[in-house]
Simulated scan of single mutants.
Amino acid sequence: MHSETTLAAEVEAAVSTAIGAILKEDDPVKRYEKLSHQLTVYDRVVTRIADEKAQCAADLASKGESFARVAGLLSVGTRSRAQQLIGRGRRQPVIFAFRDQNGELHGDAHLLATIPHNEARLQFEPTDRNLFFAGHLLQVYFGHVDEDTVTPSLYAYTTVDTTTGERRVRPTQKIHDILFVTCTDS
């Protein structure tokens, strides 16, 4: 472990590298805008680091280590905390936003700025043809979203990506509700 003095020095070096030039900006509005952008970048970095740490726990569990052993090896405290990390490492991405045929975004579109995500197409063909989006080709956005922020749906949709082909992805409950609750006036 690092001493507090060493950690403080590492933080200052990281701050200098990440935003040193921005802090020299004289215009407070421009400085604020640049800092906001950097914060978005670093939020993604922090999320990625947390995901990679969780993957380490999942990798240990995949090798047959018990939750208690993973907790000890990673110094995370309790068996329960190790189980949470393993779950995060194994979790699947969810569809958290989509763009309809008219270009309008739906769902948690604000997460596009902070969540690393993939894009795919979803040809929405439910049996109930009275649903608003029935028959639409949707552009969906999916990624690893904190389950404290969103609730994954129990259903999965088949999406198509030009590089990976077909893939089953669960939507958030919010996306599922938008697709299945919003009906047209007949």
Rank of each mutant, 00 (worst) to 15 (best):
H37Q: 07
Q38S: 07
L39S: 09
D43N: 11
R44N: 00
V45C: 02
R48Q: 13
I49F: 06
D51W: 07
K53I: 11
A54N: 10
A54R: 02
A54L: 05
Q55M: 12
C56S: 10
C56Q: 13
L60D: 05
L60R: 08
A61L: 08
A61H: 11
S62R: 14
S66I: 04
R69E: 13
R69G: 01
V70C: 05
L73S: 02
T78F: 08
T78L: 10
T78V: 07
R79V: 02
A82L: 06
Q83A: 15
Q83C: 09
L85K: 03
L85C: 04
I86K: 07
G87A: 15
G87K: 15
R88C: 08
G89D: 10
R90V: 03
R90N: 15
R91Q: 15
Q92A: 11
P93T: 05
V94T: 08
V94R: 00
F96L: 05
A97T: 06
R99C: 12
R99T: 12
D100R: 02
N102F: 10
N102R: 13
G103N: 06
E104K: 14
L105H: 11
H106W: 14
D108V: 01
H110Q: 10
H110I: 03
H110P: 00
L112I: 12
L112S: 05
A113S: 11
T114D: 00
T114A: 04
P116S: 11
P116M: 02
P116A: 13
H117S: 14
H117W: 09
N118Y: 14
E119P: 00
A120F: 08
A120P: 05
L122G: 02
Q123D: 13
F124P: 01
F124G: 03
E125V: 09
T127Y: 14
D128M: 09
N130A: 12
F132I: 03
F133G: 03
A134S: 15
A134F: 03
G135H: 09
H136T: 07
L137A: 12
L138F: 04
L138W: 01
Q139H: 07
F142Y: 15
H144Y: 08
H144S: 03
D146S: 09
D146G: 00
D146Y: 02
D148M: 07
T149H: 05
T149K: 06
T151Q: 11
S153W: 00
L154S: 02
Y157M: 10
Y157H: 12
V160A: 09
V160F: 15
D161N: 15
T162Y: 13
T163Q: 15
T164A: 10
T164R: 13
E166I: 05
E166Y: 14
V169C: 09
